[in-house]
Amino acid sequence: MWDSTTINMILEGILQTIYMTVTSTVLGYLLGLPMGVLLTISDKNGLKPNPFLYKVLDAISNIVRSIPFLILLILLIPFTRQIVGQSYGSTATIVPLIICSAPYIARMVEASLKEVDPGVIEAAKAMGAGNTQIVFKVLLVEARTSLVTNATIALGSVLGYSAMAGTVGGGGLGDIAVRYGYYRYQTDIMLVTVVLLIVLFQIFQNSGMAVAKKLDHTKKS
């Protein structure tokens, strides 16, 4: 039962899960961070209010978020095939993961940036700072603890979604859990994958929070 093939399969599953989760989150931020910044500055009390841009981004983010991930996964199969060349396996899963996570990330970035004290932004304006400088030297710097905390949450959610992709042959630990635990009734393998997912989640969560804590200077110490 626990021969080397099984163990290798599980080890590979771990690597695939880490690969999918980390790559999707990083690429999700590549889309979501600029989108969140644009949402923040184009909002009506933002640095450069632009109702049209805000409404467009707002609509995109709400529409994508309202589609359940499993359906998005299937809906995007033709698109994924175009980009990756195949619709199964862990690299293919990254495509829907990015598309699903980017709007969530954008919303979280928006929420983080809107927490920045308006007084500090006003002070920067009074010093003659331009909007670009305010974004890069004030907003993103002052909000960094909250940004990292939210990135940790995003990483955790993407980990969960990556496991869900297992139902359609997405690779990784979720895939193993579905194939062995569900189709073959091998509960022991499923339990092992669940434990491994929990461990991975804890590692992501704790290291993210540690980074956030290290970056935070707002608490007395």
Binding site: D117, V120, R144, H217
Partner: peptide, 12 residues
């Protein structure tokens, strides 16, 4: 230059 009631320093 300007100074404020709540100082408005960059906390980070």
């Amino acid at each position: 230059a300007m100074i404020f009631q709540h100082f408005n320093l960059l906390q980070q």
